[in-house]
């Protein structure tokens, strides 16, 4: 992994750092309460007091975008965390032990991965109901196969390297070999996939909430807001535009980071 002199990586880092800073600040402070209505300032255009204007309830759009971006990033982060954690365990064990367990789990994996993830997520949502936590679980489960496959492939490769063989020969137990030796060494391969997975989760959340099957009011998220904003596309275009820009910046930042880290296999 060569990071120096890498424009993609630098640009991605700058954008991501900016978005993370805005989101983190937004968690403790926003110019207005994102949900505070103000009858006196409905559908106001951008101004000094409301940099992105207000919506039909007089809520400050900038504050809402910041909060929505935070919520979306959290959902995406949690989704990736679930997919990654389960993927590490499943991929780690199947890659390490191989054999029939590996065959069965990977065929199952293929079966799940064969469907578009959004479609499966919709099915899961239909089964378990809507809402923030169900979205996270539904998407998280769908992310497991791709992470498991990447981890499995890489663990199987590392397993045959001499340093692993000599650790085993010295009498290190399987778990020690897997967790102390192999898994830390696959991080460089995993990072780009984590970044791409995060992006896919952001987009999946946005599309599902936009379609009205994801995050529900009063919870905010970028997808939710895009759904709201669509009603005011003509009267308040800055609402949809700023929400869209937040999505693009989030995805672009991580996309460039992943690109800068040398690509990676898509997750999710």
């Amino acid at each position: 992994m060569k990071l120096r002199h890498n424009k993609n990586f630098t640009a991605g880092a700058v954008i991501t750092a900016f978005m993370l800073a805005v989101i983190l600040v937004g968690m403790v402070w926003t110019p207005y309460d994102p949900n505070a209505m103000n009858g006196a300032a409905k559908m106001a255009g951008p101004s000094l007091s409301h940099p992105l204007g207000t919506d039909n309830f007089g809520r400050d759009i900038f504050s809402r975008v910041v909060e929505g971006a935070g919520a979306t990033a959290l959902i995406a982060g949690a989704t990736v965390a679930i997919g990654l954690a389960a993927g590490l365990v499943i991929g780690g064990l199947t890659g390490y032990y191989g054999g029939w367990l590996d065959e069965i789990v990977m065929r199952l994996n293929d079966a799940v991965a064969a469907f578009p993830s959004i479609l499966l997520a919709l099915v899961l949502i239909a089964l378990f109901g809507q809402g923030k936590y169900n979205i996270i679980i539904a998407l998280g489960v769908l992310f497991v196969p791709s992470f498991a496959r990447i981890v499995r492939t890489e663990v199987a490769r590392q397993k045959s390297l001499d340093y692993v063989r000599s650790a085993r020969l010295m009498g290190a137990g399987d778990m020690r070999v897997l967790f102390r030796h192999i898994l830390p060494n696959i991080v460089p391969v995993l990072l780009p996939s984590v970044a791409i997975g995060f992006n896919n989760a952001v987009l999946a959340e946005a599309s599902m909430s936009y379609l009205g099957v994801g995050v529900q009011p009063p919870d905010a998220s970028l997808g939710r807001m895009l759904n709201e904003a669509q009603g005011y596309l003509l009267s308040a275009p800055w609402y949809a535009l700023s929400t869209g820009a937040a999505i693009i910046l989030l995805v672009l930042g991580f996309g460039l980071l992943s690109e800068g880290m040398g690509g990676g296999y898509g997750a999710g």
């Binding site: 390297l161 001499d162 340093y163 063989r165 000599s166 650790a167 020969l169 030796h181 830390p184 060494n185």
Partner: peptide, 13 residues
Amino acid sequence: VVFQEPMTSLNPL
């Protein structure tokens, strides 16, 4: 055991 390839015989981390 001492293997052939000193580049991969040690854990890089």
